[in-house]
Amino acid sequence: MSAFPFGSPRYARALQRFSAHLVLLFFAATAMGPLLLVLINSMKTHRQIARNPLSLPTAIEWENFSLAWGYGNFSRGFINSIVLSGTAVLVVLFCASLAGYVLAGRKIRHWRIFTIYFMVAITVPIQLFLFPLYYLFARVLGLLGNVPAVGVVLAALNMPLAVFLMRSFFLAVPEQLEEAARIDGANTWQVLWYVLFPIVRPGMITVAVIVGLHAWNEFLITRTFLGTENITATLGLYSMNGTYVSAMGVMMAGTMILIAPPLAFFVLVQRYFIEGLVSGALKG
């Protein structure tokens, strides 16, 4: 810093801060730019968009939104998305908190094998099990298009990561708490329900948020197992793609309908979401 050509280190520091902000702002613009483009163009007519997608809307074309809502079959789509994500979250929370408790406390002899199993399963490719599972769903069980059933598949897909997160949250709880409750005569169920679950509740919310967003955004499984009739919100937008090239305003309104809910949800639960992203990734 002493070798800085502008002499005074105060100027140097100010310049450094300024350029740091510039870089950060540049990347913020890159991240948000395309989303803002969708926002402004969802309010314009096709002709206005074709003329210049960067121009600001002069009046809001509300019709874009009502048309998109119908074309994308979003009434059905949003209900299905909620059922799908809700099923996945509930199933994962139930299974993963119990498994996380057992693995964190090393309550069973083979805890190491099961821990490694879940670790490996985090990164298993969907294509390893997709094709026989599809056969089972379509030909044997007749469950194609069944939203709760697909929610259970997504739960199984998210289970390894969720077990892993829950395990790390249980590991952070001091062992003495459980021991004290045991000495007072609590059984395992009471220990879990009255002592441990209340403590790891923030962790459970984190898992719910992560799994909920995964399920909401999932494409490969939902596309394959729900087909074209019983669609989710994302599949509704997918079905519009390529069909409304001459009604770009409607297309942008449909995209906006899909952008708004996850972004709003994310802003509401940011703390839990970021916690979930980070706690799986910090090592050492």
Binding site: A31, M32, W216, N217, E218, L258
Partner: peptide, 17 residues
Amino acid sequence: LIYLGPYVLAPVTNAIL
């Protein structure tokens, strides 16, 4: 929050936009 914006959106949404 801004940087994570695109990350929380569905691949379908991002690809289509």
